[in-house]
Amino acid sequence: MTEQTTSSAYTASELIAIMAGRLLVDGQIVFAGVGIPLLAATLAQRNVAPKLTILFEGGVIGPFIRPGELPPSTNEQRCTRRANMVLPSTDVLLLLQRGYVDVGFMGGAQIDRYGNLNSSFIGPAEKPSIRLPGTGGGNDISSLTNMIVAMKHEKRRFVEKVDFITSPGWIDGRDSRARCGLPTGGMWRVVTDLAVMGFDAETREMEVLALHPGVSFAQVQDNTGFPLRRAREVGVTAPPRREELALIRELDPDRLYTA
């Protein structure tokens, strides 16, 4: 197989998981949600960050998820494989509040230019057109630590202003997050199938840091419902490596998370 065919032979979800997993650093403590975040954290743990400690809201500290045994949420026994400890779920969430967690890592239904996430309501909360499943631990995680969000890049998901702030990002930009009573954490990276984004240090507006191979800035902008900023130097991410893809497929052979 040539490099060319290798790089085109992956799904959007696989690409997101690989790119997001690369952002994790060995030795960190990461609070991961189900789906792509769980997969990406496990990928990082097996690949480049063996001392990465994963936390799940079910109460789990330091599991190693088994290939082919992905859990249906972060609250089943599959989440406890080779873990160091299980705590009551309230107490594992309190680790965020105490400050033990370096990174929170979750998926998102809808995000806005200041990195606020909505997973509760489409339309007004009083009379929604769609009632979404809700925050889960999302509000707690995004209130209390630095966030990575992994999601599909679609115009309907990247909106000027979310219908409802379930998980606070930078609120209205600048220092508004701190002013409303959230002195720590904040949205750090948004990883999609098109690009990796961060937030301007001053205005806290979303900016493109790196484009995935073969993707143009215009293409990212076309799929975004607000004007995107460009970082001073926009990089290009390295394409998924063969071993990264092999590992993802070994972990998720039934394409539970990566369909």
Binding site: Q97, S120, T135, N139, S143, I165, P168, L182
Partner: peptide, 12 residues
């Protein structure tokens, strides 16, 4: 607690 602050989860 130090969460729910600043969000619509608290507002509603």
């Amino acid at each position: 607690v130090r969460s729910m602050i600043g969000s619509d989860v608290a507002r509603i």
